[in-house]
Design a protein around this nucleic acid. Sequence first.
RNA 1: GGUCGCGUGGCCGAGUGGCUAGGCAGAGGUCUGCAAAACCUUGUACGGCGGUUCGAAUCCGCCCGUGACCUCCA
Length: 489
Amino acid sequence: MKHKLTLYNSLTRKKETFIPINTPFVGLYACGPTVYGNAHLGHARQAIIFDILFRYLTYLGYKVRYVRNITDVGHLENDADDGEDKIERIARLEHIEPMEVVQQYINNYHKNMKQLNVLPPSIEPQASGHIIEQQEMIRKILKNGFAYEVNGSIYFDVEKYSKLHNYGILSGRNIDELQSYTRELSGQHEKRNPYDFALWKKASPEHIMHWQSEWSEGYPGWHLECSAMGTKYLGQTFDIHGGGMDLLFPHHECEIAQSVASNGTSHVKYWMHNNMITINDQKMSKSLNNFITLDQLFDGSHPILKKSFDPMTIRFFILQAHYRSTLDFSNEALIASEKGLKRLMKAIEQIKNIKPSLKSSVDIGSLESQCFIALNDDLNTSVALSFLFEAVKHINLLLENKETIDSKDLERLKNFMELITFDILGLKVFEEPVEDKKLENDLIEMIVDLRLKARAGKNFSTSDDIRDRMAKLGIILNDTKEGTTWEKQ
RNA sequence: GGUCGCGUGGCCGAGUGGCUAGGCAGAGGUCUGCAAAACCUUGUACGGCGGUUCGAAUCCGCCCGUGACCUCCA
């Protein structure tokens, strides 16, 4: 496996050469969505980034097992630990089963992921299906003395843990700071320290999602599922764990603590965190209620949107920024992406029309290697795309016979463009509209034909009138050497 | 208050001690009855003030602005 893939490791805060624990196998875990709402742009970014990592590692020849979980229990509505589960809340309000809520949002998430051309993960475990494993982990932590029971609930003893291990190793926090600034929240009377976190919570009578255990009828804590499911499917230590930057603390910090407390070892070699999508320079999130769902983006139904955007435009938009930078949403930025993507796709489509020469005036090898250098450099998709656009310029010049290429290089150019664009970056050709538009199309063709006759007779006032009136209906006519083309606005 | 970031040309967004990232928009050109589209060409920007250096937007210091995390959040 000859490559120099480097990844930024949040744990060491620097780029490191990627060396799997057990080549050629790679274990990759990414925190998936909490299914109490439709997926928004932020979820798309996370999914797309790890999709590209999955694709690229696979391309490099690794056998990747990619686990992306679904969080469907254990997320609480209020600040306190004894708040209502968010999924339960929706179930109660809508008079449906909690698992019905979960299923509904999972279905929608899958639909959106398919639209974005995100490959399904190897395993997609749900927290609710791994209660046994989570309880098992709690028992281990209890046995090792890093947790305590109060009234049927189990809490992780951060103070005790931090005497032997480094709590804060990932997020750079220390418990003195946490002590002094942790907010005063209700429902913390059971904890020994405010920074302790729940491993198991006793369910109150009105709680409808709960499971039997030796401690109480209850439900698992916030951070346990990823530790338990990661261990189950990828082993006690695995290669890469990813998620949004907002999960770094406390979620991932707690995960490390749980793994160390139960198994004695930290479970992850490389931690990767993607940055947030912002809107008006503020984080797009459910809690700020400033998010745009993917469905809204695709059909243009959110009031802030000037138009609808194709899923591939969204994917391209996300790839234009490096994953560790914030990316600011705006209509203008998306429209720019849409046009850029269209140009890229058109050029790839046109490669087949290039006529090979005896000699090449373009250096395909250099473009190719620079593109891979960019991808190897912590998945710099932005720079990789810039070389794709270099190639686009060459393709267009070749089409105009202003540059030359031999048949071997032409084949190489085609393969290179398709490999990067489709296989690794996961872009695809715009979907054709599904509805039957035959009559409409035939009518437009007929009008175009009549207009051409008028033009042939130099009856330009008629032909221009037709073009103007078509434009008003949203049909744009373009006269080219090869004839008249039309497109919908 | 603590921790960690960021501030790049009209917009988005890479990068980095000396060599034009790229996309969109704009400008010029090719094409065309005209227009549009398409294509080609084109932009010398890096918050402020000091310092280090032959040389800094890139390193260091200070200041200003701004964001994330410290509650659930991708």
